[in-house]
Amino acid sequence: MRIAIAGAGAVGRSIARELLTNGHQVLLIDKEVSKVRPERIPEAEWLQADACELSSLEDAQLEDCEVVIGATGDDKVNLVVSLLAKTEFSVRRVVARINHPANEWLFNESWGVDVAVSTPRVLAALVEEAVSVGDVVRLFTLRQGQANLIEVTLPVGAPCAGVPLRDLDLPSDAAMVAIIRGSRVIVPTPDEPLEPGDELLFVALPEAEPAIRRAVCAA
């Protein structure tokens, strides 16, 4: 699919390389001439333009993109790009980088953002995931549906150890998507018993998180 990235700095270029490796078409947009260097990633399209200008996005043919990523170091730019992509070009998926945590509340569907990525929040979640056992850790927020990807590590002595998944009293607004057990990734089935140390990954609404914790850690 065709993906446009606003911001050709280190972050934007890293995303572009990853997407190109996965077989996608990538367009990099940046208004700074010094950053528009096609020789760095010759497989990508390049456009020297202000991504906050509607005419620039028309030149970029943003209507042909399935995904737009606001990856600049300026939150205002990322928000404007997101809003224009969603409202003027009906881009199906808009992803935006949050540079400053104080601005996180702005990055929602009102500004056209489907998925907001906050580096401080991701790093904090990874730290929590590494040290937290028996607690719900939010790894990622899916803004479009207001759901979260969460992780719970099953503690030693949890009452549900050895219990098959079908017997867990999980809330209806949650789905277990994977079990990480040692070096294995297990697709959950109703007959799969849980083991202490299992890392359980769920997609769930925020209000379902307390019920998940009760079901897997205190049942």
Rank of each mutant, 00 (worst) to 15 (best):
M1K: 10
R181K: 09
E58G: 02
D59W: 07
P101K: 11
R92G: 11
R143G: 15
E109W: 04
R214T: 14
A204E: 01
V137Q: 01
L165T: 08
D50T: 08
A211Y: 04
L83S: 08
N78K: 09
V33N: 04
T119S: 09
G70K: 03
V95W: 01
S34H: 05
N148K: 05
R143V: 12
V67A: 05
C52A: 08
D50R: 06
G162L: 10
R2N: 13
R121I: 02
R17C: 07
L168Y: 08
I186K: 09
D75A: 09
N103F: 10
S118H: 03
E209T: 07
E199R: 15
C160Y: 00
R213G: 03
R166M: 07
S183I: 10
Q144V: 09
A218Q: 13
P190M: 14
N78M: 07
V122S: 07
D167C: 02
A44T: 05
C52E: 09
P155A: 08
I29E: 00
I29H: 01
V117W: 00
V131F: 13
W105H: 14
P188A: 09
M176P: 10
I29R: 01
L154Q: 01
M176V: 15
C52Y: 00
L54I: 13
G134R: 05
P193V: 13
A71F: 05
D64Q: 14
R93E: 11
L123K: 07
N148R: 06
D64Y: 10
L205T: 06
V113E: 01
N108V: 07
G73T: 09
P190I: 13
E195M: 12
E18F: 13
P188F: 12
H100D: 13
S82L: 10
A219S: 12
P155I: 06
A219C: 15
L27I: 04
W46T: 02
E199Y: 04
S183E: 15
A218P: 00
A130G: 14
T141Q: 06
E195W: 12
G182L: 12
G162V: 11
V26D: 00
R138C: 03
K86V: 12
G9S: 13
T87R: 15
L149C: 05
A175V: 15
R40H: 10
L84V: 11
G157C: 09
A130Y: 05
S183W: 07
E18Y: 13
V152A: 02
S82R: 06
L106T: 03
R214N: 06
R93P: 01
E199T: 08
A102G: 08
D75H: 08
P38A: 06
D50M: 07
L194N: 04
V81C: 06
L83I: 06
C217D: 00
V81H: 01
W46F: 09
R184C: 10
D64R: 15
R13T: 14
V81R: 00
A204Y: 01
D74M: 09
C52K: 11
A208R: 01
D173N: 13
H100N: 14
I29A: 01
F140R: 08
V136Y: 00
R213T: 11
E209M: 13
P101R: 12
S14A: 15
I98E: 00
V117L: 14
A218N: 07
G12D: 06
A85Q: 06
K35A: 06
A60Q: 02
F89Q: 02
D198E: 14
S14F: 10
D59K: 15
